[in-house]
């Protein structure tokens, strides 16, 4: 069970039980819905982008497994206050982290919270769970109001 604990770290279980920013943002100008047809998981992302392109508020709703819920929760904490361009950069670095394709994220990126999801790399079947919310943010930022799927 030791390496399973790598996947289900206490921080992940905490975010699963008490997800941060788990609400519909009162004020949002971008939103998208993501679904994982394989397991029926779904997530809605709400974004408030200001004129300078900064994510002033980000929140989510939906239902999913511990990995997808914790990933969405940590993602909202990471992206709040960052620009849309930075969100793209974080997504590609995060994708490398959970697929095990990259090394450590570049020093200029704040991966202090995201690193806890690195255990997903050992479970290829769960990568989709970890990236669902991130894909949905991409949709919200770039193809507003689209429904996206991880299949």
């Amino acid at each position: 069970m030791t390496d399973l604990r790598e996947l289900y770290q206490a921080v992940i279980l905490d975010h699963n039980r008490n997800p941060r920013n788990f609400r519909m943002a009162q004020c949002h100008n971008h939103k998208a819905q993501g679904v994982n047809p394989l397991c029926g998981d779904e997530v809605q992302i709400y974004l408030q982008l200001n004129e300078a392109g900064i994510i002033e508020d980000i929140s989510f709703q939906g239902r999913g497994c511990a990995i997808s819920t914790a990933s969405a929760s940590i993602m909202t904490e990471t992206l709040k206050g960052r620009s849309a361009d930075e969100a793209d950069t974080y997504f590609s670095a995060f994708h490398q982290l959970v697929t095990g394709e990259g090394g450590r994220a570049a020093a200029e990126l704040d991966f202090s919270k995201l690193d806890v999801l690195g255990g997903v790399a050992a479970y290829p079947a769960r990568v989709k769970c970890a990236t669902l919310a991130w894909h949905t943010v991409q949709a919200a930022l770039h193809q507003n109001n689209e429904k996206i799927t991880t299949e």
Partner: peptide
């Protein structure tokens, strides 16, 4: 209760 089916599936697979 409180545990998603996918998480159960992963632990059982282990």
């Amino acid at each position: 209760d409180g545990i998603h089916a996918h998480d159960v599936g992963t632990v059982l697979d282990h």
